[in-house]
Amino acid sequence: MKIEFQGLTKQYDQEHVVLKPMDFSDDIHTLAIIGPSGGGKSTLLRILGGLLLPTSGQVSVGGEELPTDERALQKYRQGLGFVFQQGGLFRHLSAMENITLPLEQVHGYTKQEAARRAEELLERFGLGADGRKKPSELSGGQQQRVAIARAVAARPRLLLLDEPTSALDPEYTNEVLDVIHELKNEGMDFVIVTHEMGFARHACEKVAFLCEGSLLEYGDSASLFVHPKTRQLERFLSRLLEWNVSE
């Protein structure tokens, strides 16, 4: 999936600049965006997802340019899947309904088709028995797996995940990462904002390092983690390793 942006910036007011001018162009399958908190990672992902408009610059995903008017944006978003950090499931609907409702209302599935697709996904993600439960009755890990199921249900061209495990207990983190890894093996392209460096390094082909609103490094995950070029990335990685159990 070709992702491109030129002169992309985002700022809320004169002092509050979230993304400094940024250029990028590459064909990616799996990309991890890493970096310190407040560096603009989630903002960039939201712009890619059509949930936030950039202040300036051009963005295109898979050759489709990010539109600016609401109606075209709706269409643009329909082709993508988005998973939030938490609270992304509709609280008043069951796990099953969370998946079927967008399929029926947005993608034109019939009731039966939507139900079949939802059942198939829930079963595959180990949630076969939980379809009728409301989000509040599910564990954090289960909620995120339902959220991923909903995001991929309509077979989007790109999946965007915004720190899908950072609100989870460690025991639930792996079950969610396993699901994403499985999707990768099936050929699903995704961009993930994550603090899970092990996942970024081993499960994502490319990594982008975002710091204070600038794209400081980008490259193959295999080399980026071993040979950081900037002091900021070096420091960021060494801080993460400070309390690492294996060191």
């Binding site: 949930l51 269409k75 992304g88 509709f90 409702l101």
Partner: peptide, 27 residues
């Protein structure tokens, strides 16, 4: 009503009317 619910509605591709009908009103 949490902002996250409205953002999720936009993310799944709901129109304003669909968001009102399927997310805001029931909640």
């Amino acid at each position: 009503l949490e902002e996250s619910q409205l953002e999720a509605a936009r993310a799944v591709g709901f129109t304003r009317r669909q968001t009102l009908r399927y997310v805001i009103l029931p909640q």
